[in-house]
Amino acid sequence: MTLLALEDIRKSFASAEGAVPVLQGVSLGVAAGQVVALTGESGSGKSTLLHIAAGLEAPDSGRVLIGAQDMAALPDAGRAKLRRGTVGLVFQQFNLVPSLTVGANLAFQARLAGVHDPEFCAALAVRLGLSDLLARYPEQLSGGQQQRVAIGRALAAKPKVLLADEPTGNLDEATGDAVFALMLELARAQGAALLLVTHSARLAGQCDRNLHLRAGRLA
């Protein structure tokens, strides 16, 4: 069953020279439990596509289907609600909430969506190796630990769709591999559709499918 479907997505940005097309009719689908890697050169539109999939950015045209709902057709409040309950996001910069403890960060989105399961969250913390760090603040953690918190936060709400933008880009290779393996394992275990943006062909090779974006089109 396809949980995330992008249909003929087009997006351009205004510049001094006029509109610069970034995405020119991109269509893709990610099924439940499937992991799809999206690779491409810098500026090829990978992150923009991911932001559109998350409802953080609106496409100029095209549809973004999360399950049966068209994210692109919803107003800001509707997109936020869908994101809250259905989409998990993992960023290269971790983007944790600096004022909350690790424990509060882990549970935040799940509580926001009203689906917080303390036992599941505790088990997730154990699985991510964070159970001893729950009282700490993000700034007191290493990069690898912070990214594990970000993954845990995204998964704690049991999202249908997981979107990850260069999740290991800020980590060394060994730590990155470990974090990536953990994310794959947990996402598959939850049956989430995972769309992963990465520069790394090695990581992309571990995914179920590999899509390459070039000049705004899937190659």
Partner: peptide, 9 residues
């Protein structure tokens, strides 16, 4: 930004 990403409008 993280709060917006997690579903606050």
């Amino acid at each position: 930004a993280p709060l917006w990403a997690m579903g606050l409008t």
